[in-house]
């Protein structure tokens, strides 16, 4: 990795407040042209870390260098041209048009009265187009949806022309579609505009798909940084949320409840999709699925699926054909109940 591409670098950084150190000895780097996602449980200190990186809160000790210069040596003006932030704070700018709000991002570059030159206006139009909000450029920000507002704030950060953009949970209040849109937008901007973008988020699924790097923040291990796939394949995702009932599904890149089946069932499926959803249904109902490699053993419960309406259940040698999961699950529940009752009666 080229040395010039390091935007911000931290060595043995401690973050926190005067009376309470939240983390010690953090080491990290952010690179130009990359989208990095900061993941961690609620209240773990993601915002504190972001505030430290934007120099709104000083690091307790250690060195943070921004473009090779200590961050503490930056003046307010220099900082405003080097770090752009997007927050979840309430704004009071409903009475500004989208273009006016984006223009505010030019303030670090304009003179005393904030007059915009043609070059400033060009940069503003470029940013408005880049985030895809050009259609609404003359609308009041009050008329926008939450997702659109977030895009406007991202455009504001873009016109600051800062090499580093920090976003504190930019997708927090958005619906699924807007979340994916914003993440895709940020990934595109990181590449196209050659920015280093760091965002904190709870959207693990999208982060795993779109982040070039992950920063995992945990109480036990502090901050772990690395390329997304490296971290996933070395099982670092399980450490993120230390909870025995939830585990990280390496295959699908999602967190799911740990399977605790009371009864075993042999599952044979026509294809991977059928297998996945059959397993999903069975796990939810307390069955532990065995794969067809163990076919030789003669299990009392067997399920064979060759299509979404062809579900063959074999129980103690008797065969039942079900046409939907609804009828399959109903009969499974009844039979296991009867079995349990018999067991109790005996």
């Amino acid at each position: 990795m080229n040395k010039d591409s390091i935007i911000i670098k931290g060595e043995n950084v401690s973050i926190g407040y005067r009376k309470q150190t939240v983390y010690r000895e953090l080491n990290f780097q952010l690179y130009r042209g990359e989208l990095t996602c900061l993941l961690g449980a609620n209240g773990i200190g993601k915002s504190t870390l972001l505030r430290t990186l934007s120099a709104t809160q000083p690091a307790l000790c250690g060195n943070i260098s921004l473009l090779g210069k200590p961050i503490s040596s930056y003046s307010e003006e220099e900082l405003s041209r080097t770090v752009g932030v997007v927050l979840t704070d309430r704004t009071y700018a409903g009475g500004l048009t989208v273009r006016e709000l984006v223009s505010l991002g030019r303030q670090p570059h304009t003179g005393f009265f904030g007059r915009l030159h043609q070059s400033d206006k060009d940069i503003i139009e470029h940013a408005i187009n880049a985030v895809g909000i050009a259609r609404k450029a003359n609308c009041y920000t009050a008329e926008l949806s939450d997702g659109e507002r977030q895009k406007v704030m991202i455009a504001k950060a873009l016109v600051q022309e800062s090499p580093l953009i920090l976003l504190d949970e930019p997708t927090a209040f958005l619906d699924v579609i807007s979340r994916i849109e914003i993440m895709m937008l940020l990934h595109r901007l990181a590449t196209e505009e050659q920015k280093a973008i760091l965002l904190s988020t709870h959207d693990v699924e999208q982060a795993l798909v779109l982040a070039d790097r992950l920063w995992l923040l945990t109480d036990e291990n502090g901050l772990e940084c690395g390329v997304t796939e490296d971290l996933i394949l070395s099982n670092r995702m399980d450490a993120l949320f230390p909870n025995k009932e939830i585990r990280f599904d390496l295959m699908h890149g999602i967190y799911s409840p740990t399977v605790q089946g009371k009864q075993n069932i042999l599952l044979t499926a026509g294809d991977e999709t059928l297998r996945h959803w059959a397993q999903n249904a069975l796990n939810r109902n307390g069955f532990f699925c065995l794969s067809d490699e163990n076919k030789s053993k003669n299990y009392p419960l067997q399920l064979e699926i060759s299509g979404k309406d062809r579900l063959k259940l074999t129980q103690n040698g008797e065969e039942y054909i079900h046409k939907s999961f609804e009828s399959l699950l109903t009969s499974l529940r009844q039979k296991t109940n009867i079995a349990e009752k018999k067991y109790i009666n005996n």
Partner: peptide, 15 residues
């Protein structure tokens, strides 16, 4: 004008 975005945004704009 910067303060319309709240103090933390305004600070980030060099105010």
């Amino acid at each position: 004008n910067a303060l319309l975005l709240g103090t933390r945004y305004a600070e980030n704009l060099g105010i």
